[in-house]
Nucleic acid binder design. Structure first.
Lengths: 123, 123
DNA sequence: TGAATAATACAACAACTATTTAAATAATAT
DNA sequence: ATATTATTTAAATAGTTGTTGTATTATTCA
């Protein structure tokens, strides 16, 4: 992932409203939602939501598909996973022991596992 | 994780310089780096770096520890992992099949696994 | 065709962000 | 003590972002 793409993704998630929109779309998965549904669900004026949806799609975090007179939005989950890999890459210089130590030191440690798309990142 | 914390973390990673700083600290792990090392490594004027380090620590993404006349900064890796959980929570309404389908549809799919600190999130 | 609906584009303004330079603070070394 | 080094703070400025109305485009339905 290129840095510029990563920063524009983070920028687009730095607004509470855009974060709400994105998480909503992550939950919906492949089904996605049309703009009006999102506006109703989050109680936002259409013009304002449109502004934020544009920011999200320019960051490639959401995709748009025209559906009659509706616009259906979907979260780009593979891109989100690439971003996670980018952020956690080479964590603790690839020394799992150091990482685990850090995590055990912090409160609420409980390990679980998650599949991540490319490049094994030991965190 | 509270939304306001998540947005301030994303906001703090939305600057290319802050992202460089944070990823550098993630790589260093528990050892961390003092401000001057970071400034030299990234070739940034101290005053400007200080501004961005302040933003990162106000978002709790990095911790500071005084060390003589140096300030040692470290990435808060457990917080980063909490953020990842927050972002991926309830993905595809908890239906792994849909998620996998989305990921296979995208180019470059190759599954690996990563430990994540709390709450199993199926992505 | 004309009316209604869904969504985006534009303009204007207030609020915020990043960078630079210069000055201040605080710890160490001489 | 004085000088030096590491880092932060402050002030000034240029650029960017978010919100609200209003206007426009595009699609469906009668």
């Amino acid at each position: 992932m290129e840095k510029q793409i990563a920063t524009s993704i983070f920028e687009s998630l730095s607004s509470g409203l855009r974060l709400d929109v994105f998480r909503l779309l992550v939950k919906k998965g492949p089904e996605g939602m049309v703009a009006g549904e999102i506006a109703a669900m989050l109680d936002v004026p259409p013009a304002n939501l449109s502004f934020h949806l544009k920011a999200l799609s320019q960051a490639h975090l959401v995709t748009v598909e025209q559906e009659g007179r509706f616009q259906r939005y979907r979260a780009d989950i593979p891109l989100m996973l690439d971003l996670i890999v980018y952020l956690t890459e080479e964590c603790c210089s690839g020394s799992p022991a150091e990482c685990i130590e850090m995590r055990i030191a912090s409160k609420g440690f409980k390990a679980t596992t998650v599949p991540i798309p490319t490049k094994t990142t030991t965190i």
